[in-house]
Design a binder for these strands. Sequence first.
DNA 1: CTCCAGGACAAGC
DNA 2: GCTTGTCATGGA
Length: 210
Amino acid sequence: MEVYQHLYERYGQLDWWPANSLYEMMLGAVLTQNTAWSNVEKALERLGTHISPEEIEAMSEEELAEKIRPAGFFNQKALYIRALTQWYKGYGYRREAVEAKDLRFLRRELLEIKGIGRETADCILLYGFNKPTFVIDAYTKRLLARLRLVPSEKQDYEPLRLRFQEALPRDVFLYNNYHALIVINAKTCCRKKSPLCPQCPLESICGGEL
DNA sequence: CTCCAGGACAAGC
DNA sequence: GCTTGTCATGGA
């Protein structure tokens, strides 16, 4: 918890994920795949704030792709969003219906959806449906590499996720805030590949435990 | 101009 | 199983 402590002292409790609704959160998770968040914002804005799954369903494939164009990979992401929306429809677009299922079941279901890989699934589960699964993204890998907790940024997803989960108490709020802190910190400082910038809250840490 | 950003998939080994 | 080419925009 050492790394977490330092980040928490700097940024505090974030209660994170930039979205106005659960559905918008899910859209953001797909749209941000290998894409700068500023471009995701443009795409979400073009869809209109408080976009509903029913509205997305009413759109044609081309129409949706055109709307999300600024986010890049728009043809694929249009497919992915439709597939994800179809899945959600199976639960009547009801949050409680999804949350009633357990984590392992939902994770398997999400991973079967075209365009929903491990990271996107975990984001949706953690930030969308409050399930305790840890999110591993590029920022997380970069952080681990800089702290020398792993030899390089090229690490497999699952071992890293389990490493975090085994090192931390199984708490959805902790998982949520921890990953949020990693993202916020990455966007705030330590941009490029400098080891760790001087003003980084983790500057003094060397090999501490997560 | 090049490089990169909160990945995922299909094809090939 | 693991690795590689592909998908695309907008900003630095």
